[in-house]
């Protein structure tokens, strides 16, 4: 090692030292800054403005006519019968969709985990509904349920589920099933993909050890597979639940909330209020209530998960 090489590197070091520490602390923030800036500007700024609408009386087409009205909207919500119908429907819509998507998605993931001939092609095809634009899915399903141009009502009759082929989307007792089925069709993939990925992360040794210990198939599933999947299940169920509760497109296109409000969920109610009645203030207030409910739900689920993970 020659002397002048040493001196060069020594002077080099002086320069580096000053920047080194700061750079190290700042580094992760640097990588995060584009996403944080974007999210703050495009989502949070409008969100704050939007929430403030909930406390104002405002209609989109007379912008001059804005005044602060405090909690008036929220008082109105309290005595709004339609709101509570929509709340109830939101619950059934979300619960039914998530439950079916999850259980069918789990079944599909378990099937895909086992090898069979043509698995690759099958997997590519089975996930396709996920790629179909929502608007188009809604239209297709609206057609399928229509007795004039869709086969489903006729099949239901053959199966004895209906007395005569009519459009269940127009029947207040059954209308909600339409969008739920469409939603299940569209959303199985999401669960199947995430659950399949977690299933594949379970080391084979665990199954082998359990089999050697004499566990039955069901025991292996309930004692190894499920607990291993649980953390992922909680996260995906939470994300999906929140997302589906907010998901208005399918219902809006298929029934418009109709059959006597039987498919009106909160997010479509918000839509109708905003775009049909043009009452943005009230729509925002209902949105705020929905947001608070979903936040509560998510916090609860995450708390449960923490407890659960700690027990394990």
């Amino acid at each position: 090692m020659s002397v002048d090489k040493l001196t060069i590197s020594a002077s080099d070091l002086g320069r580096r030292r000053t920047t080194g520490k700061i750079k190290q602390i700042a580094e992760p923030y640097l990588y995060l800054s584009p996403s944080i800036i974007l999210i703050c500007l495009v989502i949070f700024t409008p969100l704050v403005i939007g929430i403030s609408y909930a406390f104002q009386s405002m209609h989109l087409f007379n912008p001059g006519d804005v005044e602060w009205i405090g909690f008036e909207h929220f008082e109105k919500i309290y005595s709004d019968r339609k709101f509570f119908i929509a709340l109830k429907n939101t619950f059934w819509w979300t619960f039914g969709s998530v439950l079916l998507q999850f259980s069918l998605g789990l079944g599909l993931a378990l099937l895909l985990k086992q090898g069979f001939h043509g698995r690759k092609v099958f997997q590519a095809l089975i996930f396709l509904p996920w790629a179909v634009p929502t608007f188009l899915s809604a239209l297709i399903w609206a057609w399928l349920f229509n007795p004039v141009i869709g086969p489903l009502p006729h099949w239901f009759v053959s199966l004895g589920m209906l007395d005569e082929p009519y459009n269940i989307l127009a029947d207040p007792d059954f209308a909600l099933f339409g969008p739920i089925i469409a939603n299940v069709w569209f959303g199985i993939s999401f669960f199947a993909i995430t659950l399949l990925a977690s299933l594949q992360s379970i080391p084979d040794e665990m199954y082998e050890a359990a089999a050697i210990d004499g566990a039955s198939k069901w025991q292996i599933f309930s004692k190894i597979t499920l607990p291993f999947l649980a953390p992922m299940i909680v996260i995906t169920v939470m994300l999906r639940t929140v997302w589906i509760a907010n998901f208005a497109d399918l219902i809006y296109v298929m029934t418009g909330g109709g059959a006597a409000n039987s498919t009106q969920i909160l997010s479509t109610y918000i839509f109708t209020t905003a775009f049909k009645k043009l009452d943005f203030g009230y729509a925002s207030a209902v949105s705020v209530v929905l947001l608070v409910l979903l936040l509560l739900f998510a916090t609860l689920l995450l708390k449960m998960r923490q407890k659960f993970v700690r027990v394990n």
Partner: peptide
């Protein structure tokens, strides 16, 4: 390292 203080030197250097 070789009498040079390297606390803040990057691994590659």
């Amino acid at each position: 390292i070789e009498e040079v203080r390297v606390n803040d030197v990057e691994p590659r250097d």
